[in-house]
Design a protein around this nucleic acid. Structure first.
Length: 494
RNA sequence: GGGCCGUUAGCUCAGUUUGGUAGAGCAGCGGACUUUUAAUCCGUUGGUCACAGGUUCGAUUCCUGUACGGCCCA
């Protein structure tokens, strides 16, 4: 049991005194008839005289965020989900006993107020209270009123405090909700079906990433938290659904950084009889739709750069971008050894087991990705880093794949799906070989998935979009933790 | 995993350079106050200085380690 500070003791004393006075401290049933936002939009323009003449009644509820006491009267600010409004409480309005009860309410308490609107001397729209009712006692003090809560650790661990006192944080999460809604409505309006596929998978597939492992007692089997929904969504394409999407969490057992949280939100969608070129066009429309719906314009600012979402966006080839933006020589593009030496020379660590494609990808991440601030598609990736993508007919070492970069970050990844079961088996076998050589991110053999492909999957293109990164971009947030309500933290000792 | 930085009252921060058990503002508590809005005025409580060792007569301060967090790199 934690030692209680004086502040908590004093709050508990007040709670006790309220109870002794017959005032319930956690009652139910108060129903506010309006919200702060509605009050301001309906009556915010009325003058002192108009308010006086109309005697507009109102009933609101919220948390006490500021108190200014005058002995026989008191001003307070009440905050609900939509905003803050001032309340004026007078002893002569409430009466002796009710006012005594009110004086036992304090900063942080949730109260309900009934009264009518007026304007103070300084012109602020205010509720003159006829009734003040305690709705929930707060037993702990709020962070300081002026400087608020800035300690990032507390902000993440006790996000509710962050949300109570830091309005910009509230805005980020409201915007996140709108963004997610717009993604969803875009796909629904274009005839996609939203589906849910397993989060717990016997074989984790669909991405090169280390999975979390868990255990099912009744079945006596190990299960993995999914790293991607991809292989299940494509089974649905085999099953005859032609346009599907899933918007939900993935789990990857990897480090935590400004760009990575162990669980993160991914949107994946698949379109039968489409190509990755079609998806690039769809993606341009999608982002423009989301940005315009949420912000009412097609440009946003991210970390000092104005980003314009109007398409079409440039398409660069992976190899061309490496050459032009990364300064990689033709020889290094073709030869693994040359590539490795170049990587080392620019401070990129190369593992002896890394393939040429893997090394080039690392160089790309280091030199090219940070330069792609405006939306850019990068197309045609090395086949060895694209084990689920269709092979190009023109060049079998190339995958028909694109990635989308915005703000110097990878935002989306899409490709023509590999629907040749024999080729898929070979690709899995290569992954298994890499896994056996010690690459814990390499993929597993999934026989069941190959059987699905053997039944015939229509030519399909699919794409995944990292929603957290999109939200970072659109809310000008430098860290993924600023857009995840409860980011992963180590437990605090004790 | 490596480097750098941080952790002092409920919150926001001083203080540590040069070792002698800590200060402010807000919040709280007591008092005054019926149009304030960072209300004001008077008085006042509150600290295992993250944790554990070491050096020292004496450590919040110096040293080492640990935990948690942040930034950068991998």
């Amino acid at each position: 049991m934690e030692k209680r500070s004086n502040l908590i003791e004093e709050r508990r004393q007040k709670a006790k005194r309220l109870l002794e006075r017959g005032v319930p401290i956690y009652p139910t049933g108060f129903r506010p008839q309006t919200s702060v936002e509605k009050i301001f939009s309906a009556y915010g323009q009325l003058s002192e005289e108009e308010l006086e003449a109309k005697q507009i009644p109102c009933s609101v509820a919220g948390r006490i965020m500021a108190l200014r006491n005058f002995g026989k009267a008191c001003f307070l600010h009440l905050k609900d989900e939509t905003g803050k409004i001032q309340v004026y409480v007078r002893k002569d309005k409430l009466g002796e006993e009710k006012y005594k009860n009110f004086k036992l309410m304090e900063l942080g308490d949730i109260i309900g107020v009934k009264g009518h609107l007026f304007r103070t001397k300084t012109g602020e729209l205010t509720v003159l209270a006829d009734q003040v009712e305690l709705l929930a006692k707060s037993l702990r003090p709020l962070p300081e009123k002026w400087h608020g809560l800035t300690d990032v650790e507390t902000r993440y661990r006790q996000r509710y405090l962050d949300l109570i006192v830091n309005d910009p944080v509230r805005e980020v999460f409201k915007t996140r909700s709108k963004i997610v809604q717009e993604f969803r409505s875009f796909f629904l309006s274009r005839g996609f079906m939203e589906v849910e596929t397993p989060m717990m998978q016997p074989i984790p597939g669909g991405a090169t990433a280390r999975p979390f492992k868990t255990y099912h007692n009744a079945l006596g089997m190990e299960l993995y938290l999914r790293v991607a929904p991809e292989l299940y969504l494509k089974r649905l394409i085999v099953g005859g659904f032609e346009k599907v999407f899933e918007l939900n969490r993935n789990f990857r057992n990897e480090g935590i950084s400004v760009k990575h949280n162990p669980e993160f939100t991914m949107l994946e969608f698949y379109v039968a009889y489409a190509t990755y070129e079609d998806l690039m066009v769809l993606t341009e429309e999608l982002f423009l739709h989301v940005v315009q719906q949420v912000f009412g314009k097609s440009e946003i600012e991210y970390q000092g750069n104005v980003i314009d979402f109007k398409g079409p966006w440039p398409r660069l080839s992976f190899f061309g971008a490496l050459k032009e933006l990364g300064g990689v020589s033709q020889k290094a593009l073709e030869d693994r050894q040359e590539a490795a030496e170049y990587a080392e020379s620019i401070g990129v660590k190369v593992d002896s087991k890394d393939s040429r494609g893997k090394i080039l990808t690392k160089i790309f991440d280091h030199l090219v990705e940070p330069k792609l601030i405006q939306p850019h598609f990068v197309v045609d990736y090395p086949i060895e880093v694209s084990p689920l993508s269709r092979r190009s007919e023109k060049d079998p070492t190339i995958a028909e794949r694109f990635e989308l970069f915005i703000g110097g970050r990878e935002i989306a990844n899409g490709f023509n799906e590999l629907n040749d079961p024999d080729d898929q088996r070979k690709r899995f076998e290569q992954q298994v070989a890499m896994r056996e050589a010690g690459d814990e991110e390499a993929q597993f053999m999934d026989e069941d998935y190959i059987v699905a492909l053997e039944h015939g999957m229509p030519p399909t293109a699919g794409e995944g979009i990292g929603i957290d990164r999109v939200v970072m971009l659109l809310t000008d947030s430098p860290s993924i933790r600023d857009v995840i309500l409860f980011p992963h933290m180590r437990p605090r000792k004790n």
